[in-house]
Structures are given as C-alpha cells and as structure tokens.
Amino acid sequence: MIVLVLVVALLVIAIAAGFLGSLAGLGGGVILTPVLVLFFGIPFGDAVGASAVSVLATSTTSGAAYVHDRLTDLRIGNFLQIATVPGALIGATATVLLAPTNLVPVLLIVLGLVLLSTVPGSIAMRHEEHPPEGPGDAISRRLKFEGNYYDRLHQRVVHYRGQNSKTALVVMFAAGIVSGLFGIGSGVLKVLALDRALRLPMKVSTATSNFMIGVTATAGVGVLFAGNLVLPLLAAPVAIGTTTGAYLGSRLLPGLTNRLIRWLFVVILLVLAVETLVRGVAML
C-alpha cells in the first residue's frame, strides 16, 4: 500500500469511528487498534501508539465542551487519576516491551477478550439518570465529592454525592492498565467505576470519564513515543479523523435517537473482537 492511499483510508475510517462512537456514546478509540492491525496490517505496537494519540485528541476535544458546561467533576476526576496514570504507565511499558517479542498473539487474544467484555456493558449502558444519593464514604466526605449541575432536559439543578471511592480507585487502576496496553480509552471501565461504584449521575459520569481518558492517554503516549511506537504519519490521520468525526457527531445530530447507532457500533465491536481473537489464536 502506498502512503497516499493509507492516509486517505485512515482518515475515512477514523472519521467514521469517531462519528459513530460519538453518537453511540462509546468513543471511537476502542475499534481503532483492532482495525489498524486486522485490516491495514499495521504492527500491533504501532497500532496501539496511533490509537492512543487519537484517544488523547478526541478526549481533549470533547473535554473542552464538557468542562465549559461544568459537567465535569474536577474533584473526582483529579482524584481518580492517581490510579489511572500509574496503570497506564504500566500498561504502555508492557506494550513497548512485549510488542517486539513473539507474545503479540497473546496480546491480540487479550485485546479480543477485552473487546468482548466491553460488549455487554455497551449494550446495557444502564446509566441511572439521577441515582439515589447516599451518605458517601470517608474519602468522599473528606474530599467533598459532591456537586451540582444544571440538567437541561429536566430543567433543574441536580445535586449528587460520590460513594465507594476505594472501589472506584481499584477499577480505575485496571482501566489505566488496559488503556496503556491497547491504546484505547477504556471508557466502559471508567464509566463502570463512576456509575456503579461512585453512583454519579449519567451526565457527570460521562463528562468526568472523558476528562480522565485524556490524562490516562497522555501517560501512555509518552511511554509509547519513547518506545518508537508512535509513528507520526499513522497517528496524524487517525487522530485528526476521530477528532473530526467526534466533533461532527456531537454537533450535527444532537437530537438523534442513538439506539440503532449504538447497536451498529456494538455489532462492529463484536465482529472486531471475534476477528482479533481468531487472528491471535491463528498466530500462536
């Protein structure tokens, strides 16, 4: 394949991934690493590097809007990054060390399993719009993990308070490792920690998760870059494409019902998970 064809193809695929991911509320980064490996023949490590840069760019773009709307909980987000950042450093270091070895099939199988495990959560996405507010735990009370936001749909101010901070920290550490290892946002894991453990309202959970994804990706990108796994000519079209797609998705169709798109995205995710698993097993 020649460079011109690669760049144009990557731009198109990345715009579609960012657009669909944005409409489905799942982020497009999760499908980029397997697509780059399976359909473009990009080596695993280089695919992870390009995908990580795209996750960083997309998170920064949507993060700007969420922070502007004051939906991001900066207290909780900054606190949980103390777990995701070391996780991402460990994950990215593992990728740099393992990518040149003959353990790539194992990494592909693990990636396939991670994608598969993402599917049920992506189908359900059982966000509670306004979960019942509990008393909080010692950490959340001490660090004031509570706040307010204006809910445009319900036209009222909603108050919330975080719970189970320690559980959230553990889940976030795991999310960081997965992010660093595969160059994906791990949004599903992060939302799991914020929704299920901390019991944050849906909008705050999504915005805070998005804010954190960029910081986690930064930790991974630095290590992947040093490991020679961020190739500028791969990273640029993928990052520009997903950023453009995510921007278009969030701007052009804000009122669209996204159930069908989410199902389409989940089917793509499922196919990629199975393909990645099969490829990994075949390479053993």
């Binding site: 507010e133 036209q155 108050h159």
Partner: peptide, 10 residues
Amino acid sequence: TGPSAAPTEV
C-alpha cells in the same frame, strides 16, 4: 437527589 432551592442556578 433532587432539585436545589434555586432550580435553574447552579
């Protein structure tokens, strides 16, 4: 969880 005293002002 519920609305605050000033429903439109955060």
